[in-house]
């Protein structure tokens, strides 16, 4: 992979911390309510908690999953909340009262994937090889064909309401909620760790176990393979304009530019700063602010396409495990392996 280093030394500016909320265990997920007032948090002890977005105080907390809680997400309307975990359960709550509405049992499989639709109150779960679409009341809408190996990730296509993609060993699959079988399959010998659509639906991206990122251009299916990453690529994020794809897989953030004919044959933007491997990346909902968190506890906020802008930075005491931009993108919530959650004004 050819590399282009940032030409200038980093001008760092410390991030301002609004609050710190203690926690019990490794934070697997943080999700803002659509109105930006509350955060739902899932941790490895199985606890799901609700934090006040302004103060960080824990307003509610309960042991939701035996073993660990893996994901907790607000639905896009804010009416519902769902969590899932290593106990094989996906649990749905009323988004305001937090009343338990349904408990979906997936047997021995961990429920590792739970994604709400971007407009409707329906969600997909990926548990082991099983893929299902559920209504917010817990009713099964569709049971899709079993995957040949464990589902690594599930993502909706925001540009096409009924379409979504899954990734697992041997390649991504494209689906339509109306059909129980997948519509397309891009075979690839390797293990895909995640899957992501560009917001305009024209690019499908996946990080690979063997230190590579793989992208497929849609609808053609033409693919590009970027290898040479120091470690497996678990971190991917597209900016809202679909021009930039940020990837982790090492100590440097690698940003691929899709403008013009790119990124084929182009050199990516390389952002050095982390001392240890990057663990999470997140572009702001709008604009070109990119947050990165690492196993060194460092958090950086970069402004892509603007070399002169100062890079915001802070450091926690443990691995950064999750990043969640407030919907107004003026604040970033950061979850750590220690269980702490912090809010920074950007």
């Amino acid at each position: 992979m050819p590399r282009k280093k940032s030409p200038t030394e980093l001008t760092l500016r410390p991030l301002e911390r609004d609050w710190l909320a203690e926690g019990k265990d490794y934070i697997g997920d943080l999700s803002w309510s659509p109105d930006g007032t509350r955060i739902v948090r899932a941790d490895a002890s199985g606890t799901v908690s609700i934090l006040d977005g302004r103060t960080g105080s824990v307003v509610n907390e309960w042991h939701a999953h035996k073993l660990g809680a893996l994901k907790a997400k607000w639905s896009s309307t804010g009416k519902y909340l769902a969590s899932c975990g290593q106990d094989g359960k996906a649990t749905i709550y009323n988004g305001s009262s937090l009343e338990l509405l349904a408990d979906i049992d997936h047997g021995n499989n961990w429920v590792e994937n739970l994604v709400w639709h971007h407009t409707k109150d329906i969600f997909l779960t990926g548990a082991g090889k099983d893929l299902n679409l559920w209504n917010a009341d817990g009713a099964l809408i569709k049971e899709f064909a079993k995957h040949p190996s464990t589902i690594a990730d599930v993502a909706w296509n925001q540009a096409a309401p009924d379409h979504f993609a899954t990734s697992s060993y041997n390649g991504p699959r494209l689906w339509n909620i109306k059909d129980s079988n997948y519509k397309r399959f891009f075979e690839w010998k390797g293990s895909l760790l995640n899957i992501l659509y560009s917001p305009n639906g024209k690019v499908l991206a996946a990080g690979c176990q063997d230190g590579a990122a793989h992208i497929w251009l849609l609808p053609s299916g033409e693919d590009l393979y970027m290898n040479g990453y120091p470690t497996k690529v678990r971190e991917l994020s597209f900016d809202s304009s679909s021009r930039y794809l940020a990837t982790g897989g090492g100590t440097e953030v690698i940003v691929w530019d899709f403008a013009g004919k790119g990124p084929s044959g182009s050199t990516p933007l390389v952002l050095p700063g982390h001392e240890s491997f990057i663990s999470v990346l997140a572009f702001a909902p709008k604009g070109l602010k990119l947050a990165s968190g690492g196993l060194d506890g460092e958090v950086f906020i970069w402004e892509i396409g603007n070399n002169k802008a100062p890079v915001l930075n802070t450091r926690g005491d443990s691995d950064v495990s999750t990043l969640a931009w407030r919907p107004d993108e003026k604040a970033l919530a950061v979850g750590f392996a220690s269980g702490e959650t912090m809010l920074f004004t950007t």
């Binding site: 265990d25 490794y26 697997g28 002890s45 893996l70 961990w110 464990t150 690594a152 269980g339």
Partner: peptide, 18 residues
């Protein structure tokens, strides 16, 4: 050639503080 299930499960279990 590796065991994908072990990477996934062990990686996840090792996150716990306990």
């Amino acid at each position: 050639t590796v065991r994908g299930d072990l990477i996934r499960i062990l990686g996840n279990l090792m996150r716990r503080k306990d």
